[in-house]
């Protein structure tokens, strides 16, 4: 068999970039459906560049929440990216100047996963996985966001096309891989009930932030059985 042109890390990075970029389509369309314009939608993908945070930002605004609630929810969802940087530090250091700034921007679920999935002793592959997936997802996510936003603009009432339902499904899809443990499932069940119960009582966006406290309570004590904590 001929030797593949790209190394394993690069091939994985390309596949992940295409798959992730494709759902930039749903982000673009949902952002416009939530009332943001094309430029705002593009700015979110360029500047925030983290799917969960972006969906949350437009979700909170679309539900009538304040700008502050949108920023808070988006930021809390971005905290995990900070932990990815810690895990990646031994792979990427030393990072300085423009490479540090740019490397930080592309530190997301996908670039971290591809990098850390490479053999532990193959630093070159781990680095290639991070940069190829990070830059690849960034390029495709931003490009396809524009396509999604333009599609969304031409669709008219988002509810006719089920885009409001798609937003809920998008959040479910993002949380699904994190529900592997019993404790994570319990957190999900309780948080959902808390958020729904508080929705008629508090301003839009706030019930979601209160429900986040369920996560704080769940993480406070170590599990009795060593089960895996979701990333």
């Amino acid at each position: 068999m001929a030797r593949p042109v790209l190394s394993a890390a690069r091939r994985q990075a390309v596949a992940v970039s295409i798959a992730t970029g494709a759902y930039g389509l749903s982000f673009g369309a949902l952002s416009v459906a939530a009332g943001l314009d094309l430029w705002q939608t593009m700015a979110l993908s360029l500047l925030v560049f983290s799917g969960g945070s972006q969906f949350a930002f437009v979700g909170v605004l679309g539900a009538g929440g304040t700008a502050a609630a949108a920023v808070a929810t988006s930021t809390f969802l971005g905290i995990r990216n900070g932990f990815y940087g810690v895990a990646l530090a031994e792979v990427l250091r030393p990072l300085r100047g423009a490479r540090l700034a740019w490397g930080a921007q592309v530190t997301i679920d996908e670039s971290t996963a591809v990098s850390l999935a490479q053999p532990h002793d193959d630093l070159a592959e781990r680095r290639a996985g991070f940069w190829w997936a990070g830059v690849g997802v960034f390029a495709l996510w931003n490009a396809i966001t524009i396509v999604g936003a333009l599609l969304g603009q031409s669709l008219g009432d988002p509810a006719t096309w089920g885009l409001d339902a798609a937003a809920g499904a998008a959040f479910l899809g993002l949380v699904w891989p994190r529900l592997g443990s019993r404790r994570a499932q319990a957190v999900a069940g309780i948080a959902a009930v808390v958020a729904l119960a508080l929705t008629p009582l508090l301003p839009a966006g706030v019930p979601i932030l209160v429900a986040a406290l369920v996560g704080v309570a769940a993480g406070w004590r170590a599990p009795a059985h060593a089960e895996e904590v979701p990333e």
């Binding site: 905290i79 409001d164 948080a191 429900a211 993480g219 406070w220």
Partner: peptide
Amino acid sequence: HRIAAYVTVALLISLAAVQTFT
């Protein structure tokens, strides 16, 4: 680390629930 992980779960499921049922 645990709190960050479970807060992510709580936020995403709450967003799904509110988006779907309200």
